[in-house]
Nucleic acid binder design. Structure first.
Length: 347
DNA sequence: TATCCGTGGCT
DNA sequence: TAGCCAAGGAT
């Protein structure tokens, strides 16, 4: 490690010791001690939940999961439908499917592996999460690169090459400034800095412990970095969902394990997610009445979903779900919106 | 390398 | 307000 790299890591760790955020999945006194097997479980669980997701959104879900399933063994023993329902609303549902697969693999082998390489082989753990768990939960010296680190490093070293091409150079610089000791604290410090000081827009350089080391600040325009490729336009989709009600219950299906909202309970629909637009064909014959439409914006498409009340007998797999317990069905946000529309139309 | 996969908050 | 953004992974 060069002298300037040590200057950076020392300054950041010193800042972290004073200003680290108090988060439920972090160190004592609020969380178990590192020697407790509950500690790697909580670190792993929080890291998976935090993928592409804000701290504020994760907090209530983390509390619910730890209360329902205090250990990885408890989670491993859970029914998939329970886990998916508990995850409902948090998004990126493949994370929940892989979370359960991972819990079962870990329970079967008697605990989490401790090396980055072994962690990388578990479902749902990519380069980032494997490195983060190795460093934070097991004290390994691993180089942790997430969007915060990319932003901080791009500014520190004034890397003007656009993402994603700049990732190689960013990783090399991150490797240089990651200390041998306290790599987990260093990673969390970079994330705290990125979330609170070195923010994407309007960075608060006057509060930054690395301001004196920052090449982008010296050049005068840190907010310009990192440069990103322009996004592609978001396609517009149309679809229909069907509200089939009987005796105070609504017909729900479970979506296939892959693809959009995979594994989640849902209203039956016309296949809009598998095709660009749905077929608009109802799953059963019978009288139809439009209840209105719901707008929903996903990462890669915007959807207008028409909700149609259907009089008829459903066929295929599904379940009658009591309306008074609809909140417990674990519908993803799109279908939760549709259910609210139906209940409002119903008066 | 590029694309797909949620959601809610912020500006 | 429409777009941007957030502790990415799988394919």
């Amino acid at each position: 490690m060069t002298a300037s790299a040590k200057t950076i890591s020392d300054a950041l760790l010193h800042w972290y010791d004073a200003y680290a955020r108090d988060l439920p999945w972090r160190n004592p006194p609020r969380a178990p001690r590192p020697s407790d097997p509950a500690w790697p479980y909580r670190v792993w669980l929080s890291e998976v939940m935090l993928q592409q997701t804000t701290v504020a959104a994760v907090k209530p879900y983390f509390a619910k999961f730890v209360a329902n399933w205090p250990t990885v063994e408890a989670l491993a023993a859970a029914e998939e439908a329970e886990v998916m329902a508990a995850w409902a609303g948090l998004g990126y549902y493949s994370r929940a499917r892989n979370l359960l697969k991972c819990a079962r693999a870990v329970a079967a082998r008697g605990g989490f592996p401790e090396s980055k390489e072994a962690l990388r082989g578990l479902p749902g753990l990519g380069p980032y999460t494997a490195a983060a768990v190795a460093a934070i939960a097991f004290g390994q010296r691993a180089v942790v690169v997430d969007a915060n680190v990319e932003r901080v490093v791009a500014r520190l070293f004034a890397i003007t090459e656009p993402l994603p091409a700049a990732r190689k150079a960013i990783r090399e610089r991150a490797e240089e400034i990651t200390p041998e000791q306290r790599a987990g604290d260093f990673a969390q410090a970079m994330m705290d800095l990125g979330a609170q000081i070195c923010t994407a827009r309007d960075p608060r350089c006057l509060l930054c412990p690395l301001a004196g080391d920052c090449a982008a600040r010296a050049k005068g325009d840190p907010a310009r970095l990192p440069v990103k490729a322009p996004r592609k336009p978001k396609p517009e989709r149309q679809g229909r969902a069907y509200w089939i009600e009987r005796d105070g219950a609504v017909w729900l299906v479970t979506r296939p394990g892959n693809g959009m909202l995979g594994g989640m309970r849902a209203l039956p629909d016309d296949g809009w997610s598998a095709q660009a637009d749905g077929s608009a064909m109802p799953p059963v014959p019978g009288a139809q009445l439009s209840l209105g439409a719901v707008r929903h914006v996903f990462t890669h498409a915007s959807l207008t979903l028409e909700l149609v009340r259907l009089e008829g007998e459903p066929d295929g797999d599904g379940e009658w779900w009591p309306l008074e317990r609809i909140e417990e069905a674990g519908l993803p946000t799109l279908f939760a919106k549709a259910a609210r529309l139906a209940l409002a139309a119903r008066g």
